[in-house]
Design a protein around this nucleic acid. Structure first.
Lengths: 182, 182
DNA sequence: CTGGCCATGTCAACAAGGCTGACGTAATTT
DNA sequence: AAATTACGTCAGCCTTGTTGACATGGCCAG
């Protein structure tokens, strides 16, 4: 299955009565509300990726490169296998991307110390530079959205996103953002 | 630019002091917090698309087909050009998907009444059936996430997503979910 | 120390789904 | 009558995903 961007979907069928203003009950979750949320997710993800996409395009990279760069930056010295798990692609697919990044001097691959079969990946200074460029753009949009929506919205946003993950991914996510982190 | 799934990104740099429990200030928006949010978005989107992807795969369809089905269901009788705008792809790309859906009898294309150059698209009963299947799966996950996160979280979630969209997309989104809708 | 498993890289071939560019046709607008 | 619009289609290219097969070198248990 190709990994295009967004699956999406809706379908109508009003059920609970109209709810106004403050006291939402559980009936808040009409199919109608869910449909809107799903479409919001679709369009928001487009926005989420738009800025990095522009930057990457100029260099002839794609999102796959972005993801690799991101997670290598995120966990410097990570192994190939590690990255494979986080990204959820095959090693052949990752390798193609990784090879290019190494050739281009954005990523450095070093033989493991304990286990010399492993390769430890880290960004070169040039890699860090691109990462920052991508990061800044995406973070700026996120920051603006958060600021406009307010702190309470941010908490809710994060809560819902976390609940949307598969348990497996949630575990990965928590391992990434650090133990005990909310 | 290929349309793989997620761009993503982080970068650290703790700034505001630790904030606990209730009263988040604006300093809440540390780079650290933003980084987590970005990764949450990445993993959540994987979850968001996971269920439909499974269903589609069984039929040999991809996300592109899902998106077409979704928006045709959403706006029955829409024109090709309309769909093109909403989906944000080229007509050649859409046509490939659409042709297959029409051949397979999931979508019906009818010559326009006012303007006979236009084609009006709608789902056949078989198309509606698949749409419902996809819809149910995705909606169910969304519903579960909302239930677990609580009503306040839902409002915040929607607010942030909306702020993340490009203004252009936001306009489209509002046109879709209906005028005056929050 | 040897055989088996593991981590990684790589080649080949294929598919989905983006893209551009070029045309063709019919219908509508000017 | 000419220009524009809406749509379809052919051809070719790219990225990024997939399987399958195979090679190398290193670790570890028997």
């Amino acid at each position: 299955m190709a990994q295009g961007p967004g699956a999406i979907e809706p379908r109508s069928g009003q059920r609970g009565g109209g709810q106004r203003g403050g006291g939402e009950t559980l009936l808040y979750l009409t199919d109608e509300q869910l449909r809107k949320a799903i479409e919001a997710m679709f369009f928001a993800y487009r926005g989420f990726t738009a800025d990095p996409d522009r930057i990457l395009e100029a260099r002839g990279y794609g999102r796959a490169h972005h993801r690799a760069i991101h997670f290598i930056h995120r966990a410097p010295g990570t192994t190939v296998n590690n990255l494979l798990t986080v990204l959820g692609v095959t090693k052949q697919s990752l390798n193609r991307v990784l090879r290019r990044l190494i050739e281009d001097g954005l990523v450095d691959s070093a033989v493991g110390v304990h286990d010399r079969r492993e390769r430890h990946l880290r960004l070169t200074s040039e890699g860090v530079e691109l990462e920052r460029e991508l990061s800044d753009a995406q973070r700026e949009r996120m920051r603006a959205a958060f600021r406009a929506a307010g702190p309470e919205a941010v908490a809710g946003f994060r809560a819902v996103l976390e609940e949307m993950m598969d348990p497996e991914m949630r575990r990965q996510y928590h391992r990434l953002i650090g133990p005990g982190q909310k």
